[in-house]
Nucleic acid binder design. Structure first.
Lengths: 151, 151
DNA sequence: CTCGTTGCAAACAGTTTGCAATCCG
DNA sequence: CGGATTGCAAACTGTTTGCAACGAG
């Protein structure tokens, strides 16, 4: 699932052209795996393989990939938009535990949201996606917080 | 709870000065109620009472209010940071249902997350806050989507 | 009086866009 | 070939900052 050939085919099907810049971008993208990458980081990776590529090309490609639902935008309040590869299995979303101290983002699978989803859909809202961010302190940071706990 | 006098006292306690600009800002803020206001909107409200006030003052005041945990930053991907008054009752958070079509943000109380929270804390993560956004289509928009459902 | 605060304008950073040259199909 | 795409630079937009004047305590 989600290999380069498939993405290339999908691009063509959409009427988009497959340029070397896009090919490299897709390659680097797949390297990123589950990480939450910024456009800048993606750009950096692409530049290593071809320094000629311009920033705006990456921005435009990312936009296309987002429309294709291959990546999703995430926001971790660090100043720039971050993206991650979409999960193929639509019903297995994951959540993000964000440490307020060190900034680490821990991913977490979960099934506990299903009851809540049923409740929401009962009210006539059609769920397409959801995003749960839990802010707090990871165990490492909490252990090192002597006296200064909770401010 | 959360009236102007209390906020003013808290400001002084922090060592901040209580200027007329800040007083107006707090007044307008309390008028906003539960809405998700942007700095621009707050600025607009303040300007009505005193057109002399500068934008940067509002930005700086908002920063202070955020540090005081009187307001929280929210992100609804509409281009600017939004804020809402903090809930006093820490254990009654609400979620946001965001309509992808009309952009409406519906608030929703919920208790279904408690099981999930227990699960998270069992792993040693200390929860301070959380934020659940559910993207989809509100019943109105879904009703008007003939043929074009899901893209 | 003193230091925090203000308003302004300029700086910033991430992102978008206009355009001529280029390239995919 | 023709229209999509590229790289560049310039434009944009929300937000931050430097600074002299001001004002709360």
């Amino acid at each position: 699932m989600n290999n380069q050939t498939q993405i290339v085919d999908a691009l063509r099907k959409r009427g988009n052209k497959v340029t070397p810049q896009r090919l490299i971008t897709i390659e680097v993208l797949l390297t990123m795996g589950q990480q939450h990458f910024s456009v800048e980081e993606l750009f950096h990776g692409v530049k290593q393989r071809n320094p000629e590529v311009g920033m705006s090309t990456i921005y435009r490609t990312v936009q296309i990939l987002e429309e294709m639902r291959l990546i999703t935008k995430r926001n971790f309040d660090d100043g720039f938009a971050r993206y991650e590869l979409c999960e193929m299995d639509e019903k297995h979303w994951h959540h993000h535990l964000i440490c307020l101290k060190c900034g680490r983002v821990i991913e977490m699978q979960d099934e506990y949201l299903e009851a809540l989803e049923k409740e929401i859909e009962k009210k006539g809202f059609i769920i397409i996606n959801h995003e749960l961010k839990v802010y707090g302190y990871c165990s490492d940071c909490y252990a090192n917080m002597e006296g200064e706990k909770f401010d």
